[in-house]
């Protein structure tokens, strides 16, 4: 082999090696956690990569019972699904009108709303507003709150999508006698399925993972979603690493499932958001 070919082979092997090392470094914490969740409490006290000497599957049963995971799982699901449905309905209607008639008030409204992508939320004053509307410590309050804070990014993504739907479709529909709401419901909404899937997946994950809002606005542990329940569990069982590990794994399962199933929408949504700009 000549020298250039040799150099190339070395750099190829090296490149593959680096990729493997980085992937391993990223995945190791999760593998350690998974292994620890099956260990007995004595063995789990020293966190290592070794396989459990004895597989203790009861850890999971203990965690589900002690961590009240079932109710918090249902809470989290309720918050995420209801908010996402609201987001999809409100945002797709708004994006349709704003994108099609992008002038005057609508133009202002668009920039007004998408500025929320970057702006911080003033949680202290938000508390006051929520109290005024009697939304603190209520399920409906947290659902509306999640919807409100997800609107800016969702609108930005949907707006970009609607402008790729040709306007001629609207004109044809109007000539055929469509009313505005028919035009939206029967013609445009079905065409928006891909972006709605993206909205669904992205918002589901960010709401499921959120921790700040319940921390501020839900005092009652019966209303807590998964994240807050796990945080509380961690505080109470800080010395039983096996249980903590099992608890964390259980919290991860739903999002990992959504991630694997909705991968193409996530990557599509993430990159269209940042690449189009």
């Amino acid at each position: 082999m000549n020298r250039v070919g040799m150099k190339k082979t070395i750099s190829h092997v090296l490149g593959n090696l680096i990729a493997i090392v980085i992937s391993t470094a990223v995945i190791i914490p999760l593998v350690v956690l998974l292994l620890n969740s099956f260990k007995s409490s004595g063995e789990a006290n020293r966190m290592t990569l070794s396989l459990p000497k004895q597989w203790v599957f009861e850890n999971y049963a203990v965690v589900i019972e002690k961590g009240k995971l079932l109710s918090s799982f249902l809470n989290g699901l309720l918050y995420a699904v209801s908010s996402v449905v609201l987001i999809v309905i409100l945002v797709s209607a708004a994006a349709f009108v704003i994108s099609r008639n992008h002038q005057g008030t609508n133009k202002f409204l668009y920039y007004f709303i998408i500025s929320g992508i970057a702006m911080p939320i003033n949680n202290v004053a938000l508390m006051k507003v929520m109290q005024t509307f009697h939304l603190v410590n209520t399920r409906i309050g947290i659902i509306l709150l999640y919807t409100a804070i997800s609107i800016p990014l969702s609108l930005f993504l949907t707006y970009g999508f609607v402008s790729t739907i040709p306007r001629e479709i609207d004109e044809a529909a109007v000539i055929d006698g469509c009313k505005p709401y028919q035009l939206f419901l029967k013609i445009i909404a079905p065409l928006m399925k891909p972006i709605c899937s993206t909205l669904f997946v992205l918002n589901f994950m960010s709401i499921w993972n959120d921790f700040t809002m319940p921390l501020y606005y839900l005092n009652n542990s019966r209303q807590w979603p998964m994240t807050l329940a796990v945080y509380n569990f961690f505080g109470a069982f800080e010395n039983s690493w096996n249980l903590v590990a099992a608890d964390i794994i259980l919290t991860l399962v739903p999002v990992l499932l959504v991630f694997v199933l909705g991968q193409k929408y996530i990557v599509g949504g993430v990159s269209s958001g940042a690449v189009k700009g």
């Binding site: 309905i89 409100l90 945002v91 209607a93 708004a94 349709f96 009108v97 704003i98 099609r100 008639n101 008030t105 609508n106 409204l109 007004f112 709303i113 929320g116 702006m119 911080p120 939320i121 003033n122 949680n123 004053a125 938000l126 006051k128 507003v129 929520m130 509307f133 509306l144 709150l145 919807t147 409100a148 804070i149 609107i151 800016p152 609108l155 609207d170 109007v174 505005p180 035009l183 939206f184």
Partner: peptide, 22 residues
Amino acid sequence: LYPWYFSCGAAVLYFLLFFLPG
């Protein structure tokens, strides 16, 4: 054809629970 009230829901919710607190 593109009635303004379609964008009302999103705008009102955003205004009350995001902009107003700020």
